[in-house]
Amino acid sequence: MSEAMDALEARVYRQLNMMRDLGDRLTGIRVRETSPDGAVTAEVDGNGALVDLVLSTEISKLSPAEFESVVVATAGRAAHLAIVRRGELVQAFNTELAESMPGGESGY
């Protein structure tokens, strides 16, 4: 019975470490996207939240409506890429978790 408990404990620690690693990777996601004209660079985190916005002198050539459109489109592309990256990390975690379970199934 001790061997079974040791195996269970080892598996739980592996899974805990996998979860911590996933958390670190999710926290570390940063995506920078620059508009085609170079006027706007947006950086978002793994939740798609804007964490930095850099405006070049090119914005002086834009109307207010164009400026708004470029900022929203650029930040939107960055957020999309961040969410895609987040999904890839979660999918990889789920696959690794399933493989670490007895019989290869996570039960989820």
Rank of each mutant, 00 (worst) to 15 (best):
L55N: 04
N47T: 15
Y13V: 13
E43V: 14
T34Q: 10
N47G: 15
N47M: 12
R14K: 13
N47H: 10
V51E: 07
M18V: 00
S63C: 05
D24Q: 06
E66L: 10
S35M: 05
A78Q: 08
R25K: 15
E68D: 11
T34V: 14
S56G: 10
R77Q: 11
D52Y: 00
E43A: 09
V31F: 04
A65W: 06
L22T: 00
E58F: 09
R32Y: 03
R14Q: 15
S56C: 12
G46H: 09
R30L: 00
P36K: 10
E43N: 03
D24F: 01
A39E: 07
V70C: 02
A75I: 03
A73T: 15
K61W: 01
S63P: 12
G48M: 14
V51I: 15
L22Q: 07
L16H: 11
T27G: 13
D45E: 12
L62T: 02
A49W: 09
L53S: 04
P36I: 06
G28E: 09
M19T: 13
R25Y: 02
T41H: 01
L53P: 00
R32Q: 12
D52M: 04
T34F: 02
S63V: 03
N17V: 00
R14P: 09
T34I: 08
E66F: 12
P64E: 08
G38F: 07
K61F: 08
G76K: 04
S56Y: 09
R77D: 06
A73S: 09
V40T: 11
T57A: 14
I29R: 13
I29H: 07
